[in-house]
Amino acid sequence: MINLPEPPHALLAGGLALAMLALMAVSVAIGYAPFDLSAAFADVLAGRETLPAVILTELRLPRALMGAMTGFTLGLAGAAMQGLLRNPLAEPGVIGVSSAAALGAVLVFYSGLAGSFGLALPLGGIGGALVATVLLYALVGRGAGTTTLVLAGVAVSAFAGALTALALNLSPNPYAVVEITFWLMGSLTDRSMDHVVLALPLMAAGWLMLLSSGRALDGLSLGDDTAASMGFDLPRLRLKLVAGAALSVGAAVAVTGAIGFVGLVVPHVLRPFVGHRPGRLLLVSGLGGAVLLLAADIGVRLIGIQPELKLGVVTAVVGAPFLFSLIYRLRREGA
């Protein structure tokens, strides 16, 4: 692998945070309808409920916030899972929580509850994620090792995927199938401030659990025995990381649908810049995820293809070739 110069951590994190804020501003500024941003801000500040004000607070702002929050979650959880499993191919959904959140949302669609009130869908997703987490704990118990955790994640994921397919299979009307399928592709369109308010506490709790595990992840890079001999309680660490990923990723998927590759690719790209230290990677990868997702979401609006490309589709279309290049590089290194 190329030996990249390593910028100071604070500079890197600060730069990415600034980029994130800048992209959030751009995200607020662009859209399909002609829109006077300064007038909208003036109206909001003056408390006037004009159309521009509503567009700003109910459409543009939540979309930018949700993009940053979801991207941060995916980047952070991806880095944490890669650190925990000591595997560069781990991604936020590796413990099955993404599929389960998707299933929860699909069941809400399927049961027709989605139309009954606005937050039914994300609540269903969060419910799915929580059920999956409980199931995961029941499967692996407290003392289980990494392999058991991965296997349990794969099992939960496969089961949730199967039930999702079953729901689609049994769907009484084809429109529901189309709707569900599109939702599953992941998008930030038409998310409201209610979504942000619902997801933020869960995500923030998850972020805290993940971000506070940095040192333990550094220790864990030397193997289970060495990390334990360094004083880290590994069963507790696993519990904390799984709970953190489940809360944050569950909330993200519940609101935005499944957005792939961000959590896989971002930690990878940024790892050399933090000297491959898993603890240092956490915050940086979260910020990088936010930057990537905001950029992709701005991209789908700028391209202007209608109906709008789904965010998850764009990240996968861009992300998969990146994975090719990654494998190619790994092969060249003989790793």
Partner: peptide
């Protein structure tokens, strides 16, 4: 107490 494992290895190229 410090422990040096037999198959000690660092996962990432730090």
């Amino acid at each position: 107490l410090a422990y040096l494992a037999q198959d000690a290895e660092a996962q990432w190229p730090i």
